[in-house]
Design a protein around this nucleic acid. Structure first.
Length: 371
DNA sequence: TCTGGGGTCCTAGGACCC
DNA sequence: TCTGGGGTCCTAGGACCC
């Protein structure tokens, strides 16, 4: 029998802040949403009682919960705590999969000899997370990954739900279809219009079940990764030159991350969002994959000038790299030499930044305009 | 001073090729 | 005087997740 434990941290970013500053215990705490146009990233359960939830605009959260403690995001700190969490999970099984910064899947199959029944082990893990790391978590224990995830989401906060072998259908039948990972508001509405409200009803409709409930076929690990950087401007822009300066900073960020991972991108995309929230993306695929700021910038600048609407103000700009390759492309020898020296230069800059901070080297105006 | 930023996956149309 | 048609790549948009 296979046993999957899905572990999901409760209000993870808030919990990390509390682990570092116990004075926050018991108070409504909100991470993110401080800047003018920011949104809530994580809200403590005290804050949620006021109606605050993640993705809510900051100004709204402040209105609903003015006495909350607002904290800025500290990504590095959360990543460090995430490592601690997964280090603890790995004590209980050699097979632990990281699903996100605050979610993991522990395969407890065959660990009975070492740790006792999967249910006891699951309890133990949730308890240790709380006691050793001060990280409250919820768990779902089931014979299937999807089921375990659903169970964990229903166990929140700080609970554990166990779905015994053979009781899967009984467990699922009465639940709304929205509990299925991948079924969001749109799909839920579409299903509701067809008279399908619960997972049980969905299971009876073979046509829909195939589309939404394909629990068996697991996705292959052939993911075509992508990475990007985007920013909502504190103030919307109307001058193209000002947009280009922002774009260059985004390009630098993406280029640095590509080089850090030893990746080259074949497809570069620009994202533009106007004040009225109309959003467009325009992409270019290149023959020679690149990780060079100057090449990426030249592409996105071209796309910007070609597609930006002159009389509308821009509130967000983004640069994304996709169709990422580790190696395997064959430029001509001449190009290769030339590119290699550029790559070396950028890597040198990356190194200095890592050592002395992002402000150590800034690009001159000539580069910004030059492409 | 309304509506973040990091991603993945899917669909659909058109170009192009055989 | 008729519209095949399958496969792949590129592009754009959108749903969804944390």
């Amino acid at each position: 029998m296979r046993w999957c434990l899905h572990v999901d941290m409760d209000a993870f970013f808030v919990s990390v802040e509390r682990a570092l500053d116990p004075r926050l215990d018991g108070k409504p705490v909100i991470v993110g949403g401080k800047r003018g146009r920011g949104v809530v990233t994580s809200a403590s359960y005290e804050a949620r009682r006021c109606g605050v939830h993640s993705a809510m605009p900051g100004f709204q959260a402040r209105k609903l919960c003015p006495h909350a403690v607002f904290l800025p995001m500290r990504h590095d700190v959360y990543r460090e705590y995430s490592r601690k969490v997964f280090f603890l999970l790995q004590r209980y099984s050699p097979i632990v999969r990281k699903l996100s910064i605050d979610e993991g899947l522990v395969d407890l199959s065959g660990t009975e000899r070492l740790w006792g029944t999967p249910l006891n082990t699951a309890h133990e893990i949730i308890t240790r997370l709380k006691e050793e790391l001060k990280m409250p978590a919820s768990g779902g224990l089931a014979g299937d990954e999807t089921l375990a995830k659903v169970a964990a989401s229903l166990a929140k906060p700080h609970g554990l739900i166990y779905v015994p072998d053979g009781s899967e259908n009984k467990f699922l039948a009465a639940l709304p279809v929205g509990v299925i990972p991948g079924v969001g508001p749109k799909a839920q509405t579409a299903l509701l219009n067809q008279g399908v409200e619960t997972v049980g009803a969905l299971l009876e409709r073979r046509d829909f079940a195939r589309r939404y409930l394909d629990l068996e076929t697991k996705r292959e690990e052939t993911r075509d990764h992508s990475m990007g950087s985007e920013t909502t401007l504190a103030e919307s822009l109307s001058r193209v030159e000002a947009m280009e300066e922002v774009l260059y900073r985004l390009v630098e960020d993406v280029g640095q991350r590509l080089r850090a991972d030893g990746l080259h991108a074949r497809c570069i995309t620009i994202k533009i969002r106007y004040d009225d929230f109309e959003t467009l993306t325009r992409s270019r695929t290149v023959d020679v994959p690149t990780c060079l700021d100057r090449e990426i910038f030249s592409l996105v600048r071209g796309l910007l000038r070609q597609h930006v609407t002159a009389d509308k103000r821009v509130r967000l700009l983004g640069v994304h790299a996709s169709a990422l390759l580790a190696r395997g492309w064959q430029p001509s020898l001449f190009d290769f030499q030339k590119r290699l020296s550029w790559e070396r230069l950028y890597r040198g800059i990356d190194g200095l930044r890592e050592k002395y901070g992002d402000r150590a080297i800034t690009t001159g105006a000539g580069w910004t305009k030059g492409g």
